[in-house]
Simulated assay, not measured.
Amino acid sequence: MPRFYIEKKFWANLPSSSKAIILKHSNADGVSFPSQLTIAILAGVTEKTVRDGLAGLEGFPEYKRTRYYTNRGHIAYKYAITPSSKNRRLFSVSHAFFNGGNWSLLTPTAKSIYFTLKHYSWWDWLIYSELDEGANLFIPENPYIYREFDFLDADCEIIAEMSGITKKSLREAYQSLIKNYFIEYIGKVDGRDTWKLFVQPSTTYKPNWLNDKLKKRYAVSENITY
């Protein structure tokens, strides 16, 4: 995700329904072809929320929706975000959080703040090596790419403002992120409350359990599964 989405408050100004839907089915050109049901399942929301979320993305930087006809004569849509420049500052999120069902189980406020947390996260080898007992046993040339987590110590007021939520909603959001293996509280580092932001979830959910949940919530056929 381009960092200017956070810095310019485009993310904060999105409705919560738009923040919840993540279009991960993209090709190399940034074009995505998922059905609204697929988006709903991956995001853990209703199809109505998906429709509201897609409508809320209209006018968002680099977002475009194009109508087309399928080979079977059905109306469908392509969702596209223009590929970012190589020189643009970005941050990424592992697909494991989506494929493993973790994202779908987050509360709306947790989904709202997570990308803001990623934007303000940082990494320091000395602090990392003190917290990770095995870090000093193997020190690669570039330890950053092998890290298991980043750090976060941003002010609550800033997180709330740049996420478009109230400060009093943060407690619930953090609890949801902890429960679903996105973050973990470390304690005080240099006098500031500090968190681990995991690069990948330490635990994901079994496909059978996820499929049982989605069959209860959505009218899905047997071949729509995690």
Rank of each mutant, 00 (worst) to 15 (best):
K188C: 07
K179E: 09
L106H: 06
E133R: 14
L131P: 05
E141K: 15
F115P: 10
F115N: 13
N87G: 14
P61N: 03
D193Q: 10
D190W: 10
E161T: 13
R67D: 11
D193L: 10
Y146I: 09
P108L: 04
V93P: 02
E141N: 09
A173K: 03
V93G: 07
D193H: 11
F182R: 08
A110D: 03
Q200T: 14
T109A: 13
F98W: 04
E130K: 15
I183H: 03
I178H: 08
I165W: 05
W103P: 03
F97A: 00
Y63W: 02
T70D: 01
P143G: 04
S92A: 12
N180K: 09
F60R: 01
L170F: 01
F98Y: 01
I178R: 14
Y79E: 00
E172S: 14
A160Q: 05
K167D: 08
N136S: 13
W103S: 06
S121T: 11
V93T: 14
K179A: 12
S84Y: 06
A135N: 05
P143S: 07
A173R: 02
M162P: 05
K78L: 10
K196D: 02
D193Y: 08
W125S: 06
F60Q: 05
F138A: 11
T70S: 07
T116L: 02
Y63D: 01
T82E: 06
G53H: 00
E172V: 10
H95L: 14
V189I: 15
G164M: 03
W125M: 04
Q175A: 13
N136W: 04
L106M: 00
I81Q: 10
F98I: 13
G164A: 01
I178D: 12
P108V: 06
R89A: 14
L105E: 12
S112R: 09
Y185P: 08
R171K: 15
K188H: 09
N102R: 06
G134T: 12
T116Q: 01
S176P: 04
A76G: 06
A154F: 00
T109W: 06
L117P: 03
S84E: 14
K78W: 01
L177R: 00
D52H: 09
D124W: 00
V199E: 10
L57V: 00
Y146Q: 13
R89N: 15
R192K: 15
L106N: 05
A76L: 02
N142E: 10
R88T: 15
L106W: 02
D153C: 10
A76M: 06
Y128M: 06
I113H: 02
K86D: 14
R171F: 04
K78A: 15
I158V: 15
K111D: 01
L117Y: 06
E58K: 14
F91C: 07
